[in-house]
Design a binder for these strands. Sequence first.
DNA 1: TAACTGTATTATATTAAATAGTACAGTTGT
DNA 2: ACAACTGTACTATTTAATATAATACAGTTA
Lengths: 131, 131
Amino acid sequence: MFDLDLRSRKPIYEQLIEKTKEMIIHDVLKPDEQLPSVRLLAKQLTINPNTIQKAYRELEREGYIYSIPGKGSFVANKKEAIYDEKVKQLEENILKLCQEAFYIGLKKEQIFSIVERAERAIRGGEEIDSN
Amino acid sequence: MFDLDLRSRKPIYEQLIEKTKEMIIHDVLKPDEQLPSVRLLAKQLTINPNTIQKAYRELEREGYIYSIPGKGSFVANKKEAIYDEKVKQLEENILKLCQEAFYIGLKKEQIFSIVERAERAIRGGEEIDSN
DNA sequence: TAACTGTATTATATTAAATAGTACAGTTGT
DNA sequence: ACAACTGTACTATTTAATATAATACAGTTA
């Protein structure tokens, strides 16, 4: 579930934050679903509980989860806000890359074909949604 | 010229590598043009010469520049190879982002409009090339 | 009450990044 | 020949971020 690369140059807590965000955005973790406790997850990942807590603290600060002392940590039900932010961020990144691509001479058609390739890659692995 | 953010969480030498690559790709630095010496650039950026050398060493390893002991460091004239690699890398990144975008529900038309916005942003600031 | 939960704190260890200093050999222009 | 450049190499040290370790406290749950 929370599989992360302990030998990466990227900090563990950052990886954990990213993975958790992804799972929330992709609805792998449902709203109000309980997350594993800091101690349990630390044991499972064989890392320190403080590292987990650091990640959870940041996730709560950004509104992805909420924590109740004594009860546990849960997925926030603010999917719209989070989703909108994610879309905005994606758009920014795509825009930036496309500008770079145009800047060094790629043509619009080349980028369109990449977009279509991405669509096929995704649509191929999912049931058709009829819209 | 080599303006970089000394307070970034990103290592200085990595920033320097990226900036230099950009300038080479964008032809701001021409083939066989001499780069500032490690000592001079270190003084200009008020950082340590070793940090510059680390960046130059990596740039040479990747084929972006070549260094001649006693003479200096120069921009490599392998633009085609570097360019091809850059294009490939850009395509990979765009593909990845588009897959992510499709995955969370964006439509092809939305991404196309982003691509076109990027094109306008670039074409607006350059003379038309007639192809 | 026992065993969970989140939270907080302090101290320590580890590692990467950056600095500092020195040295050696090749190049360049005077 | 000489002074002033160049790249390169090496060791030692400092700094900051990351991660660990060990506790502690309070609320929750069965």
